[in-house]
Nucleic acid binder design. Structure first.
Lengths: 142, 142
DNA sequence: TGCTATTCATTCGTATACGAATGATTTCGA
DNA sequence: TCGAAATCATTCGTATACGAATGAATAGCA
């Protein structure tokens, strides 16, 4: 017999839930960061550059979960805003070296608490132990 | 004192985890559906139309978590593929009535098990009880 | 009834996100 | 060392995703 094709509840599918939860979080994050603040992806890139001082473009993409094509767009916009700087790698001429500008560094420092607030707000419906459990479970399916 | 600005671990932020988990699921879903199969969002629209026989465009968007602008694009592509049909609502002339075509109905029936397989594969790293817990927790933050 | 508020659908602009193809460069193995 | 394989970055095309603005139509209320 065919695997019960009557009981496909979209609302109970992990993909749908991930999509909706992510949508909600992005909305919260954008609201928290305010007018012309960085998007979640842009902020992730800024944070990773802040941790490493200097990264190649593709390496930055790998650290933040962006493919090279996406990374290109995100980096271009951050450069346009003067938050990061690019330079040729003198050793490996294929590479583009990226680093935070002074302005970018200051921005990350200034926004880190707002990013945390976005996390808090997203998880607000759950108790602290449930929050830890959710983060742990999600960490295992990525 | 400022709320510890040293310990922002991107990998432990709910937003980052949701984004990565969603990325992984979409990749699994696309692979499962095969060449020119529907995307997760397209499939969600098809499923909801299959449940309701007929829906207005915005109503479909609300059921599947798409805003009107996104819905427009998704619906346009499904119409181009002959999977759904549109008609004017004779009573409310603002509305567009959407329904599954015969082909769309057959496609949903044929792909429902693949959608389930995508769910299973996405959740594979977790035990059954963990899977239920994750789904329950996600359901509470959407 | 008549007018305001709401709803519906569309369009425009911006921002991820990814596959595929490409050219330049570097790495690596025979 | 030299040629194949891999890596880096870019570009193109497609698909969500959403804010904002718009025009048409309906709903709701005084």
């Amino acid at each position: 017999m065919p695997p019960r094709s009557e009981t496909y509840r979209l609302e109970a599918q992990i993909g749908h839930l991930l999509r909706r939860a992510h949508q909600r979080h992005v909305a919260i994050f954008i609201a928290e960061m305010g007018e012309d603040g960085p998007t979640p992806t842009q902020f992730a890139a800024l944070v990773k550059l802040g941790e490493s001082k200097e990264l190649s473009q593709n390496h930055l993409g790998r650290l933040t979960g962006m493919d090279p094509a996406t990374t290109k767009g995100v980096v271009t916009r951050l450069i346009e805003r003067g938050l990061i700087e690019r330079a040729q790698d003198p050793i490996d001429k294929r590479r583009v070296r990226l680093r935070l500008s002074g302005e970018g560094l200051a921005l990350v420092a200034r926004l880190i608490d707002k990013a945390r607030a976005a996390t808090t707000a997203t998880l607000a419906p759950l108790s602290p132990s449930e929050q830890r459990r959710l983060i742990s479970l999600l960490g295992r399916i990525v």
